[in-house]
């Protein structure tokens, strides 16, 4: 026993140690978390339906329900159909669902089912955990948007932009939107008191945001005061960015101020992203120490 103990002591002191301030390790584990999270995401049946496929279902409903209506004309004279009109709206909704709704419900659940407690006792850096979560949102968000765009194009014949600049706008609005949404979701996960109540607490927030941000109802149809309220939150700007990509340029006259205002989109989302990230880093706890 004594001999064994001595060997163990020596091997323990010479054994390689984990270093806290090793950025390579933080990133390597972050990437490992992304793979782990994405895999687990697609294996949970209900989440895939309510978050991942929801915008697709809504696009189908709107396109079918308003199939007789026209929403304006493209420069070549083609009618803007319900599918054309609602594709950017649903892409905006997807950003909110895949990021904010998915993350806040997911993490609140992890808090109550013991996932975070286990991770908190493991040598996983908090930053790697965040990378994993944000990465999961980006990956699932991209797949969701690709599916939505392909479906709209193939099934509803939505004319997709051919201009590279439009797609560049799409890329940055999408990436900024989805990461901002993810960060805000991580922050909001602190609000529900339990994993079970998370859905009931979070869904009303996202639903109200969608209604006042021009996702389900045209933004120009809202009263000015409500437009002003919605303009504080990032979803209005994400949806506006998506409209600038997929709707004819003439539609910008319907926007507040008569332009797509890409600069404000970047500014508002950017502020929410940075503030959200700082708040998450400062307030995130694996568990409440005195729970």
């Amino acid at each position: 026993m004594t001999a064994e103990t001595t060997t163990a002591t020596t091997s323990a002191t010479t054994a390689p140690r984990v270093s806290a301030n090793d950025p390579g390790r933080v990133i390597r584990l972050g990437i490992s978390r992304i793979r782990y999270e994405v895999r687990a995401y697609f294996r949970q049946g209900d989440g895939v339906f309510f978050v991942f496929l929801f915008p697709l279902v809504m696009l189908t409903i709107f396109s079918v329900a308003f199939s007789k209506a026209t929403f304006g004309r493209f420069p070549n004279g083609d009618a803007v159909t319900a599918a054309d009109f609602y594709l950017p709206a649903m892409l905006g909704a997807g950003l909110l669902l895949s990021g904010l709704q998915n993350m806040s419900i997911d993490i609140a659940g992890e808090k109550s089912d013991g996932t975070l407690k286990r991770l908190g006792g493991s040598p996983l850096p908090v930053v790697s955990y965040f990378i994993g979560k944000i990465g999961q949102v980006i990956v699932t968000g991209i797949l969701q948007a690709a599916l939505l765009i392909a479906f709209a194009g193939l099934v509803f014949g939505v004319a997709l932009p051919t201009d590279g600049a439009k797609w560049a706008t799409f890329a940055w609005v999408f990436l900024l939107g989805v990461t901002t949404s993810a960060v805000l979701g991580i922050g909001l996960s602190a609000i529900p008191r339990s994993g079970k109540s998370a859905t009931a607490v979070i869904i009303p927030i996202t639903l109200v945001l969608q209604f006042i941000s021009g996702v389900y109802i045209g933004f120009s149809q809202l009263p000015t005061w409500l437009q002003n309220v919605a303009s504080v939150f990032p979803l209005k700007w994400m949806a506006q960015g998506m409209r600038s990509v997929f709707l004819p340029d003439a539609f910008k006259t319907a926007e507040v101020g008569g332009s797509w205002d890409l600069g404000s989109i970047a500014l508002v989302c950017g502020i929410w992203f940075v503030v959200g990230l700082v708040v998450c880093r400062l307030t995130f706890r694996w568990i409440r120490k005195d729970g």
């Binding site: 270093s19 687990a40 294996r43 949970q44 659940g109 089912d113 013991g114 286990r118 006792g121 040598p123």
Partner: peptide
């Protein structure tokens, strides 16, 4: 910190994760 946690093994009394990964994963 993380360096300290790497030297510990913890088996908690209760765990109830959703478990959408395999044992090996």
């Amino acid at each position: 910190g993380v360096e300290w946690k790497a030297r510990l093994g913890i088996v908690l009394q209760n765990t109830g994760e959703t478990g959408n990964v395999t044992v090996r994963e």
